[in-house]
Design a protein around this nucleic acid. Structure first.
Lengths: 250, 250
DNA sequence: CGAATAGTGTCTCTCAGACAATATTGC
DNA sequence: GCAATATTGTCTGAGAGACACTATTCG
């Protein structure tokens, strides 16, 4: 029986014509977030080609037929923005498939959310003439191409929620960072000031979140006691969670 | 300037040939969960056609060219399982696009997670000869078609997490339900017993979660005091959150 | 020394978990 | 009455938020 079923299946596939299905294109977009000078910022590129030529957009492009979705996103990330995957956190943000989101044809886009440390100004890569970090609060939604305003909003909201119960905030920092560095990440992403003392106690108390690097930072130009340096721990969850203040239902 | 850009864009679109892009197909799958007799169960169908003919699978199918993704999922839900959208909670679960997940061609699937009350045994609908509620713990992952084992696992994990900080557990109940009904939902989805007394205090204390229906339920065959009936409230978040016991990192 | 930042301790309030006690039904 | 379920109350410990206080640097 099993042999018969396998033969059936092979015969079916040999006769299969892919053109009988509705033709879609699939793209990936990259919502690359970082914290620069205390401000949550997103990397935007200027589109060089139609549609939306000259408009700002998220980096991204078409997925190749034999290419995994995340692999396609990472390829765009590295080619167009110069950010290496190894220093960043990458997670899928969902699928956006409104039939009218692309004027060319039916396109389903799978955006990926990326957290990266504050990097030197990225250089325009393949097929990109201009790109820049833009503070998220300064982005004008109506001026973005496609439905990228909605994608960006989903990415920012995901980032805000994720900081509460996961240790991914460390992906915004370098390999070694101070508690104050980490606090500035939370403050920038959430857009609220946090009490440095309570923040210190909570982060150092959460099991597996931070590992002491055994070294100290150099104080800034305004002086101050040197801070201990930490590395990210091995925990996958943040427990207890770090809840946003004024947990309004919004 | 704007007029020139618009003319450029129109000219580009008129000359555009959609066949220059890699051909994908896009499908939707439905992870329909319910709680039957205290057991978290998923609706599975038997595939009538190749590939994976005769294997169990999630309901789903190809998205039409002019059809929204969620609309496509709801169409499958209603056509293949008879569950009406109005009684259920529907949310997107992400995109699954491994290049080898479908032997026919490159297919990206966008599964939707659906929570529904315990409904009368659904009737096989369009293109479906057999379907049944299967306890999630009884599903044999290797016997599911495509990558549906991974999709189901993602859906169950999303459901477990979502119950903690959102009021969607009420979607597993009917319009009116008792606190014990709701507790059995949490117990079934999380797979752990909960203290009825603490559960009662927490759910009735969470603002906007539940609204008293002003009526009482009929006690079961074993007696017991009648319970007050509730309806779902208007809250979008569950605050304070209902955290799973033994919050292991796992 | 003063300003600035890092880190610790203390108090209060909320809330989760354990569980006693009471209320209301069917048999 | 007895079993079963519903609901309220009480206690304890963990943890969040407010904030006093100490520690260490630069100028």
């Amino acid at each position: 029986m099993d042999g018969q079923a396998a033969r059936d299946e092979r015969a079916f596939l040999a006769a299969y014509d892919a053109r009988t299905f509705p033709p879609f294109a699939v793209t990936v977009d990259v919502v690359l977030l970082t914290v620069r000078e205390g401000v949550l910022s997103v990397l935007l590129v200027e589109r060089e080609t139609h549609p939306f030529r000259g408009r700002l957009a998220l980096p991204g492009g078409f997925v190749q037929v034999d290419e995994d979705l995340e692999q396609a996103a990472v390829r765009r990330l590295e080619q167009e923005t110069g950010v290496r995957r190894s220093v960043a956190h990458v997670e899928q943000l969902g699928a956006f498939g409104d039939p009218l989101r692309d004027p060319r044809m039916r396109v389903v886009s799978v955006p990926y959310l990326v957290f990266a440390p504050d990097l030197p100004a990225p250089v325009p890569g393949v097929r990109v003439s201009w790109l820049a970090w833009v503070p998220v609060r300064a982005v004008e939604p109506d001026r973005l191409a496609f439905d990228h305003a909605a994608v960006l909003a989903a990415g920012v909201e995901r980032a805000r929620a994720k900081l509460e119960y996961s240790p991914v905030a460390t992906a915004f920092c370098g390999a070694e960072f101070t508690i104050a560095d980490l606090r500035r990440v939370y403050e920038a992403v959430w857009g609220v000031p946090l009490d440095p003392r309570n923040f210190h106690r909570k982060t150092t108390g959460a099991e597996g979140f931070l590992v002491p690097a055994g070294r100290e930072s150099v104080p800034g130009p305004e002086g101050g006691r040197p801070a201990a340096l930490y590395q990210r721990g091995h925990a996958l969850q943040l427990h207890p969670a770090m809840l946003r203040p004024t947990y309004a239902t919004s």
